[in-house]
Design a protein around this nucleic acid. Sequence first.
DNA 1: ATTGCATCATAACAGTTATTATGTATGTAA
DNA 2: TTACATACATAATAACTGTTATGATGCAAT
Lengths: 200, 200
Amino acid sequence: MRAASRTVADGQNRRAEVVAATRRVIARDGLDKASMRAIAQELGCTTGVLTHYFRDKEAMLDVVLAEIVAGVDDRRRRLLSGDYGLADVIDYLCDTLPNSDDQIEWWKAWLAFTSASFGAGRRGTTHTRFYDQLRRNWESSFRELAARGEIRADIDPALEGDSLLALLDGMGVQILISPDKLPRDRQRAILTRHFSSIVP
Amino acid sequence: MRAASRTVADGQNRRAEVVAATRRVIARDGLDKASMRAIAQELGCTTGVLTHYFRDKEAMLDVVLAEIVAGVDDRRRRLLSGDYGLADVIDYLCDTLPNSDDQIEWWKAWLAFTSASFGAGRRGTTHTRFYDQLRRNWESSFRELAARGEIRADIDPALEGDSLLALLDGMGVQILISPDKLPRDRQRAILTRHFSSIVP
DNA sequence: ATTGCATCATAACAGTTATTATGTATGTAA
DNA sequence: TTACATACATAATAACTGTTATGATGCAAT
C-alpha cells in the first residue's frame, strides 16, 4: 500500500536506506537502543523491510560497520591524490574528526561498535584489522613526507603513525564528549604542537 | 541459608562486592550483557541481593562509574606527592594505561560508559565534568613542571593538558583493541616522542 | 488473464529484561 | 520469649527483544 508512494528502482536503494537508518539510530540512541523496531520506526516502516533485505540483525550491523571503514578509506584516498604537505594532513585530520554532523554520526557509531567489540569475538577482528591498516597507511604516508622533505628525514615513520593514530582517536572521543572544549582552532593547535617536533 | 556461611560485619562490604561484580561483568561481557541476573550470578547469589542494596540498576551503575573516577584521582594523588619530574609522569602514565588486569577492567568499563553516555543525558555530565577536572589537573601539573624547570618555560600548560589527555585516551583504546601492537616499551616511546618538544 | 516474484505488513513466538511483591531465615534488643 | 529489622531467595509481572511464518499488494512476464 505504502509501496505505491515510492518510485520504481527503489529496491536498489532501499537496502542502503536501512543501513543509513540503522547508523542514525546507533549514533543517536546508542547500540543497545538500536532494536529492529526502533530502526524500522526511524525509516518509517515495519520490521518486515529489515527482515526482507537482511537475514540477521547481525548482518545489518556488519554492513554498517563495513561502511564506516570504507568511508575512512574514501576520504583518505582523496588526501593522497597529488602532492600533499603537512598542512594538507592537518586539514584532512580536521575534516575527519567529528566536527560536521556527518562525522559525528560516524564517530559515535564507530565508538559504539568499539566498546561492544570487547566482549564479542567475531566483530573484534574487524577493529584490529582496521587499525592495522590505518597504522600501515600512516606509516607509509610519513615515509613519503620524509622522502619529499616535508618533514624531517630522521623520524621513525611507524612511531609517527602509532602516535598520530592514538592522538586522533583520543581527540575524537574528547570532541564527542565536550565539543565546545575542543573547537576547530583548538584541534589545529593540538595537531600543530604534535607535529612541531618533526618539521624540518 | 547461604547467609550462614558468611561472616558477620559482611553487610558493610556486601555493597562493595556488588559494585565490584558489576564492574567485572561490564569489563568482561560488555555493558549490554551486564543484566541483573548476570551480575548476581557473578557474585554467586540471586538478584535479591542487588535489589536489597540498590534501588535501581541505574543506581548501581552510577556507583561503578563514580568508583572509576575516584580510582583515577587516587592514583594521581600518589604521583603528586613530593617533587616529580617528566620521567615520573611517564611512569605514572604507563601505570594508568590498561596494562595490568586491574587497569584493563577500569578502562573497558569506562569506555563502555563513555559510548553509552552519548544517548542518555544524565550520565553524560559525569563524563564532561570528569574530563574537565582531568584537564585542569594536567594544566596545573605542567605549570608546576615548567616553574621547576623540568620542562621548557615557554609552553602552554592548557594546550599541553589537552594534548596529553587526548593522546592518553587514544592510547588506552588502542591498547585495549590490540595490546600486542602497543606494548609497554612502545607506549614509552610514544610518550617520550610526545614530550620531546617540551624538554628544556 | 494468470502465474510468479518482489516488497512489504502483521502477528505470533519464545526468550530476556528490570522491577516489584512476598516469603523466609538470621541476628539483635527488650 | 517476644519483637523487629537485616539480608537475602523466590516468583510473578509487564515490557521488550530478535526471529519466523503467514498474508497482502503490486508489477512484470508469459
